[in-house]
């Protein structure tokens, strides 16, 4: 049982990381205003939301499994308060920080209509901090963090998210950028 919990805890962490990478990329795609292939924009928005929620579910699995696991013995304080853990406190703390940020981003995302656009947006921007912190936690804390398959996976995610961010910062990022830069049509 313990072996199963341990394996499940580790794998759910990896799955969560991959899903968060996809969520970030989908978020950036959404912001560009472009539909992806034949998927309309409103479906892209829903996809972004659902992938993010799914990633959060796997993150919860990851945490609960490691709380129940007799080897990891994660306690409730370590789940919410970073850098107090007994084993690799810094790297584990990064995971805690990322989890706190995820909680903030998800909660404000679900309450967007009540909070108003400004607060929602300010908190949502924290996603850009959350993702690299989570990646750092995976590499530094994970048992598989330096194994070959994980390094390849991490590098692939980093390249994909990095490319999306670079595109986000480019001048023609917005679907409407050209039209809005003016010039006679």
């Amino acid at each position: 049982m313990d072996n199963a919990l341990w394996a499940f805890g580790r794998m759910s962490g990896v799955v969560s990381l991959v899903l968060f990478s996809v969520a970030v990329i989908l978020g950036i795609l959404n912001r560009s205003g472009r539909p992806l292939f034949a998927i309309p924009r409103f479906s892209m928005t829903l996809l972004h939301r659902n992938v993010s929620l799914l990633a959060t579910v796997f993150l919860v699995f990851h945490i609960v499994a490691l709380m129940l696991d007799s080897y990891a013995k994660l306690n409730v304080i370590d789940v919410f308060v970073p850098f107090l853990g007994g084993f690799k406190p810094f790297w584990q703390g990064l995971g805690t920080v990322a989890f706190d940020l995820v909680l903030a981003v998800v909660a404000t995302g679900l309450l967007r209509h009540r909070l108003g656009q400004r607060s929602f947006r300010a908190i949502h921007w924290l996603s850009y901090a959350m993702w690299p912190i989570a990646l750092g936690h995976a590499i530094g804390n994970g048992t598989d963090g330096t194994s070959k398959w994980f390094v390849v996976l991490a590098a692939g995610s980093l390249a994909a998210v990095g490319a999306a961010v670079a595109w986000r910062l480019s001048a023609n990022f917005l679907e409407t950028a050209k039209a809005r830069q003016g010039g006679l049509s």
Partner: peptide
């Protein structure tokens, strides 16, 4: 901001 979701829906 003219994101276009409403026009699709």
């Amino acid at each position: 901001d003219g994101r276009g979701l409403c026009t699709e829906l």
